[in-house]
């Protein structure tokens, strides 16, 4: 990857720096006063349940939607007025595959390269084909590719103009574990070269590979920070239990005070709640010598579900 253009736009250490960004569709507020700062060179994970407004937020960052309220900059350019400058320096990978299925890999890349008016187009296309291991498939039609290869093509296409910021909207949905891992290795290589990456995902293992995270629900930013910050932001207590008749136990404890989540993981049950004292009191009441109880560190998923549940109480 060639280094970012010398004429770096004015601005701070932040590739994304927005405050109060809001988007309404009709009477529905889909993105509600979000503040977000993403440092240059950072991999920023953007998480949230379906319909929480992740795609909408990203579209506002890259100039596809105009925010109803809020201000800020993306790569130093104003998100409301300098959309065409933003477009030139951002690589956006849409949630749905959005290249031409009736064009070959090379033709798709060539088309995108032309739209960005790249000075040495042929070389740029060849470089990106090689970098992502697409060179010997370059004549295959995009429509005939499997999910993993489509994803590589999309990544190659949104990198072709050497952007400074990558906005990746669920790039690994429907991709097998090995391909996902390779994809993430690639993302880390890019970040090491100075690229900023904002990436949405529903996979917790991927969330853990980000430098920082943000969690969104009902259009609101519920928490953000490093993995530890996020885990600490909700004081969740989680116990595991193993033993016989877990299904009965789950049914029994679900309605007890202080118990907010009861989730089965194979032969163990995870029981969590925000009020540690109430939770432990409830657990004592159902103690059975056949069961083995352990207190563990709450996982990201438990934290997110807890966040979503409390958000539902507040906003929905």
């Amino acid at each position: 990857m060639p280094p970012p253009p010398a004429a770096a736009p004015p601005g701070s250490d932040f590739a994304i720096d927005v405050t109060g960004v809001t988007k309404r569709f009709g009477s529905k507020t889909v993105v509600n006063a979000i503040d977000l700062r993403v440092r240059r060179g950072e991999i920023y994970g953007f998480l949230g349940p379906n319909g929480s407004g992740k795609t909408t937020f990203i579209r506002m960052l890259c100039g596809l939607l105009t925010p109803d309220a809020g201000t800020g900059t993306c790569l130093g350019y104003d998100v409301r007025t300098q959309q065409s400058d933003i477009k030139r320096h951002v690589g956006y990978m849409t949630q749905k595959f959005s290249y031409y299925e009736d064009l070959s890999i090379r033709e798709n890349l060539d088309f995108i390269a032309r739209l960005y008016d790249l000075p040495d187009r042929r070389a740029a296309v060849q470089r990106s084909l090689e970098r992502l291991g697409l060179a010997n498939r370059s004549h295959q039609l995009a429509g005939q590719l499997s999910g993993g290869w489509k994803q590589r093509l999309s990544l190659a296409a949104c990198l072709i103009h050497s952007p400074q910021l990558l906005l990746l909207d669920e790039p690994t949905a429907g991709v097998d574990p090995k391909a996902r891992r390779e994809f993430w290795d690639e993302i880390h290589r890019l970040a090491a070269e100075g690229l900023t990456v904002l990436i949405t995902t529903h996979y917790m293992d991927e969330a853990e590979r980000c430098h920082r995270l943000a969690y969104l629900a009902y259009g609101k930013l519920l928490t953000h920070g490093t993995l530890d910050d996020v885990l600490a932001s909700v004081r969740l207590t989680t116990w595991t239990v193993t033993g016989p008749d877990l299904l009965d136990l789950a049914k029994k404890i679900r309605s007890l005070p202080g118990i907010e989540q009861v989730v089965a993981f194979g032969t163990t049950l995870h029981v969590s709640g925000r009020d540690a004292a109430a939770l432990e009191a409830s657990l004592t009441s159902v103690r059975d010598p056949r069961h083995e109880w352990n207190k563990i560190r709450s996982g990201l998923e438990d934290v997110f579900i807890s966040l979503m549940d409390s958000a539902k109480d507040n906003f929905a």
Partner: peptide, 25 residues
């Protein structure tokens, strides 16, 4: 919005793409 100006390169990119698609269809 700061305008990016009309260029023949980009126009040609679209024309070329349409021809390829026409050929395939």
């Amino acid at each position: 919005m700061s305008a990016s100006r009309f260029t023949l390169h980009r126009l040609w990119a679209i024309v070329l793409k349409e021809f390829i698609q026409m050929k395939r269809d």
